[in-house]
Design a protein around this nucleic acid. Sequence first.
DNA 1: CGAAGCCTTGATGCGCCTCAACGTACGTGG
DNA 2: CCACGTACGTTGAGGCGCATCAAGGCTTCG
Lengths: 236, 236
Amino acid sequence: MVHNLDVSLVCDLPPFMGMAEQEIADLLAQARAVRYPKGKNIFSQGEKAGNFFLLLDGHIQVVKLTQGGEQVVPRYMSPGELFGIARALRLDAYPASAVAAVDCVVLIWPNAIWDDLVGRHPAFATNTYRIIGQRLTETQQQLAELATAKVEQRVANAILKLAKQTGRRTDEGVLIDFPVSRQDISEMTGTTLHTVSRLLSAWEQAGWVRSGRRKITLVEGHKIVLVANGESGGAA
Amino acid sequence: MVHNLDVSLVCDLPPFMGMAEQEIADLLAQARAVRYPKGKNIFSQGEKAGNFFLLLDGHIQVVKLTQGGEQVVPRYMSPGELFGIARALRLDAYPASAVAAVDCVVLIWPNAIWDDLVGRHPAFATNTYRIIGQRLTETQQQLAELATAKVEQRVANAILKLAKQTGRRTDEGVLIDFPVSRQDISEMTGTTLHTVSRLLSAWEQAGWVRSGRRKITLVEGHKIVLVANGESGGAA
DNA sequence: CGAAGCCTTGATGCGCCTCAACGTACGTGG
DNA sequence: CCACGTACGTTGAGGCGCATCAAGGCTTCG
């Protein structure tokens, strides 16, 4: 192997909890580490699923295309998460695309080793299915929210989710740690970039957020929580 | 065992494809068959997941409650489908409720046997994860649709889905084979029963459907497909 | 320095929710 | 079997939330 990946890189990540060091080392020996520049497609919806992935560093945008040709962003992923695990669900093709939101480092394994992997390591299998369960539950949650909540609430929720997932404390507040455009938010929430822009402007007026070009900082998170719960008339 | 469940009941169902007759017989020996009257909750969202289920006869409505207290119906289930398989995803509680849409007959197994079951029968494990993969993909699809399509299209799609899933040919057209109210459709599509009523009235005027109290028949399915694809200005 | 990408803000309109009232089928108990 | 209550369906009127259309400013990058 050309590379030398150390066990310490991944041994504390949720997918590998409960696995012995040697097992993890063996697994790493079969991985390829690849860097994807910002904006690059890691894999595309409909493409034959040949590999599965672990995000080591960076942030990934999951993109789903509708038959109408419009984009939806069901989620973002953070370091330590497995993705592209179509094989676990016996899917032949990836059901969505994965795009590098920033420069990313990714471990890649061929699907050929998957069945053997889960067969040999019950802990890994358990962890994987727990992850899938969480994602399914979360997706259903989002479906319900999209069906019942107003745009305001959905946008507030999306921002809160991003902040919780990747927020970094700064002196101004909690900063979402990778570039997010108004359009990105609109694709997460089923609205338009115009509406998102107006909402953020209003919240900025009210002093609840600070935002700029592809950058959002929560100043008063609790206010945004109120909006998300529909307990606020918005920033009048 | 008090009951006598024959292998022929289930051996051709997707979840059991590839399993030996004896294996299926052993599995059935551990099952309890229960009848649920129309409207009865089989299990409830948030309830500790203690069992998993197979629908033998009838139709089941999956209901998800939002924090706002509103209902959403992500899907209906038909005979032959496994449900309540939270254990497969390591979920402690059911993520949604299951309600009998009509009188139902259901097989019930305790979750205690799950791990042993999938460990011992790779074919069953594979089938199960394939099912989950399909549901996850379908849920994401619905999310994308809800985020981008107009109410018209979503309602048309919901009806088409039900018809495809449970449609029965009659002399008038394809009848959805269990009672569905306007409200049910609205909870599947994130709209109001009023809007659904108006749409169905319009389509009935146009001769594309026939509908009545909790009953919908597709007369000209291809017209509804056009609406679903947004290629129709509606029934003017 | 130009071009492209991102953000903002106004004006306009309509899709769909909301509120309201009534009609009709079902089933339950007398 | 009929009378009543309840659940379901229909249809109208009104208005608001948000998409849409339009124009312009600012930042980043080649």
